[in-house]
């Protein structure tokens, strides 16, 4: 396969993996107003859980050698458990306490990943992580895996959309809009928020697991806060509240990120290349500010009502 094509496959696979995390964030932030800035933490939990569950013990690493499907499910469960841990103490309090607690869990997860070599491989990380459908469509490069990831995106998208547009999702929006009013109408804000946090984090965990399976090697350096920033940028740019926006935003932001990275490498003197990250962050940050100021609803913002427009008897329509 040609270089350009295989690069395209690489690009799309990464963007698709990111988009699963931003779908999760859309449920949490876009629909429920939950302020999770520890996305990298839940992503890391998913990645490590998948790696630990699936790596063959024969590699001499901590691994259970489970089938990959069990690994993917296990990754989601693990991320969900961490979300419970953060959510229970903070979801009754003011919004930004959740933010602080989620970044706390992200940092703590990284500490554990770095300092528990028996479990996580420490700074050396874990390698030889099994990849589902490896070897299928022989010689196609990563196309088989890309297809698998896209199927996962579709499943997550459909599942979340179905929940968002159910009475459950309607309650989430009500709580986002006015917690006091929602509680006075019998909704337990805490319980619904916790559900949304856990489910969204499970999507992030799945995203992390697919990342681990894709790269086949993970170390603590893969889970820095910059990931959280990227996912937020994707959601805000795409249109907070809209699942389709989250998908589009992932593609656009990841394209900008990759292209600008390439351009900087090409244009800047070698000495400055060490940290092209700063310039990329300025670029995305600037874009974000413009979106927040001038188009707060993003590319595909929440123009639609919270639940599908329903058929009301025609005489009601003015």
């Amino acid at each position: 396969m040609s270089g350009v094509l295989s690069y395209l496959v690489f690009f799309l696979t990464t963007a698709a993996i990111y988009s699963i995390a931003s779908l999760g964030l859309n449920l949490q932030w876009g629909r429920t107003g939950l302020f999770n800035i520890g996305v990298s933490g839940f992503f890391a939990v998913g990645a490590y859980a998948y790696a630990i569950l699936t790596i063959s013990p024969l590699t001499g690493q901590p691994g259970l050698g489970w089938p990959v499907l069990a690994g993917l499910l296990g990754a989601m469960v693990a991320a969900g458990l961490f979300a419970l841990l953060v959510g229970i103490p903070t979801l009754r309090l003011r919004d930004d306490y959740l933010a602080i607690a989620t970044i706390g869990i992200a940092i703590t997860v990284q500490l554990i990943a770095t300092n528990e070599p028996e479990l996580t491989g420490g700074t050396n990380g874990l390698f030889a992580i099994p990849q589902p459908v490896a070897g299928w469509l022989h010689g196609s490069g990563g196309v088989a895996f890309l297809i698998l990831v896209l199927i996962c995106v579709a499943l997550v998208y459909l599942a979340l959309e179905r929940m968002i547009h159910s009475p459950w999702g309607r309650v989430l929006v009500a709580i986002r809009e006015d917690e006091t009013a929602a509680s006075s109408l019998g909704k337990s804000a805490f319980s619904f928020r916790l559900q949304s946090l856990v489910i969204g984090s499970m999507a992030m965990g799945l995203s992390g697991a697919l990342y681990a399976a894709f790269i086949k090697f993970i170390s603590p350096q893969d889970f820095l806060p910059i990931f959280t920033f990227q996912v937020w940028a994707m959601l805000i740019l795409g249109g907070s509240g809209s699942s389709a926006g989250a998908l589009l935003g992932s593609l656009v932001v990841w394209a900008i990120w990759t292209l600008s990275g390439g351009l900087i490498q090409a244009a800047l003197p070698a000495k400055l290349q060490v940290d092209s990250g700063a310039i990329q962050i300025i670029l995305i940050g600037l874009l974000l500010m413009l979106v927040i100021l001038f188009r707060p609803s993003g590319l595909l913002g929440r123009k639609r009502p919270a639940v599908h427009r329903s058929t009301v008897p025609s005489k009601e329509q003015a």
Binding site: A174, E177, L185, P305
Partner: peptide, 25 residues
Amino acid sequence: PKPFREMTVLENLMVAAPGQLGERF
């Protein structure tokens, strides 16, 4: 008044109905 601002009037009312099965995700 504390309406759910980004929801329609119909949705404002529908969300208030008690005992909705669909509120379990």
